[in-house]
């Protein structure tokens, strides 16, 4: 590459990028900062950057039963749904990727089309159904409903991941006398593991962030963390801003833990495309 002379266009471009990068993270950082403020430091016409930090908001949040129950419900519902997604989604994806049949295209389209369904259209009938079974507002109902999401997403993302495993490795294992199942367990799964973990992490983030279905399928016992957090804000204009900010931070942390995994997953998807 020859060195570029400094031109105004490049400077403007860099400025725009810097601004975009700033806008990407600043609102979240500001929220985190507000979580450490007393209410008087938040309700100021001129935003305060310097203040005496307090841990009161965070300890209040972590000490509330409703928040802890939400955290527990979210963890159980998402964990179980992702587990079901792994157990049912990965093998199915492998079968579609490695044993082509004339339905493969239709199966892939069916799995994708589940994403077209408007969440309200699923949530309203399910609410009536779970009410009739006496399972409304319970974790099992939520887990089963979320499984539809996790299975389809994991399957959709795992098909290309399995297709990316070099066929030669699997063929060699067959020659060595491995059976079809052994090849899946001992060759395909470990080789594709990195991409598969990305797919699984993605499905977790998706259900952790889910709101509408949880809102409609729970009234008190099975409320997940997003619902609890949204309720905290429904306290009129006299909101405890600091506490709200702290709950937003708590809610946002788990998905952000997967930032590294997911950006690596994104890279591997496009590296595959390139080769």
């Amino acid at each position: 590459m020859k060195p570029h002379p400094i031109r105004p266009g490049r400077l403007v471009a860099k400025a725009v990028l810097t601004l975009a990068g700033f806008l990407a993270v600043f609102p979240l950082l500001w929220t985190a900062l507000n979580a450490l403020k007393n209410n008087v430091d938040i309700i100021t016409r001129v935003p305060k950057v310097f203040f005496t930090p307090t841990l009161a908001n965070i300890s209040y949040i972590l000490g509330r039963d409703s928040v802890l129950a939400g955290l527990y419900n979210s963890a159980v519902a998402c964990g179980a749904a992702v587990l079901i997604g792994i157990v049912l989604g990965l093998p199915a994806a492998y079968a579609v990727a490695r044993y082509p049949n004339r339905f493969a295209g239709d199966i892939q389209f069916f799995v994708l089309s589940l994403r077209f369904l408007p969440p309200v259209a699923v949530a309203i009938p399910l609410m009536v159904i779970w009410l009739q079974f006496g399972l409304y507002d319970t974790l099992p109902a939520l887990i089963v409903t979320y499984s539809l999401l996790t299975i389809s997403v994991i399957m959709w993302l795992a098909i290309p991941a399995f297709q990316g495993v070099p066929k030669e490795i699997e063929e060699a294992a067959f020659v060595d006398g491995y059976g079809a199942y052994a090849v899946f367990w001992r060759i395909a799964l470990p080789v594709a593991a990195r991409s598969l973990i990305g797919a699984i992490a993605f499905s977790f983030v998706l259900v952790w962030n889910e709101f509408l279905i949880a809102l409609m399928l729970s009234s008190s016992n099975a409320k997940t963390l997003p619902i609890v957090a949204s309720e905290l804000s429904q306290q009129g204009m006299n909101v405890p801003w600091g506490i709200l900010n702290a709950s937003v931070v708590l809610l946002s942390l788990p998905p952000l833990l997967f930032l590294g995994v997911l950006s690596g997953f994104l890279n591997s998807v496009f590296r595959q495309k390139k080769s």
Binding site: A20, G21, A24, V25, P27, L28, W30, T31, V205, W208, N209, F211, P226, A229, S230, S233, L244, N245, V248, L251, S252, P255, L256, F258, L259, L262, S263, L266
Partner: peptide, 15 residues
């Protein structure tokens, strides 16, 4: 640039 999309929609809306 990936950070905002990972946030729960509820969090993003609050922020």
């Amino acid at each position: 640039f990936i950070i905002p999309v990972l946030l729960p929609r509820v969090s993003a809306a609050f922020v």
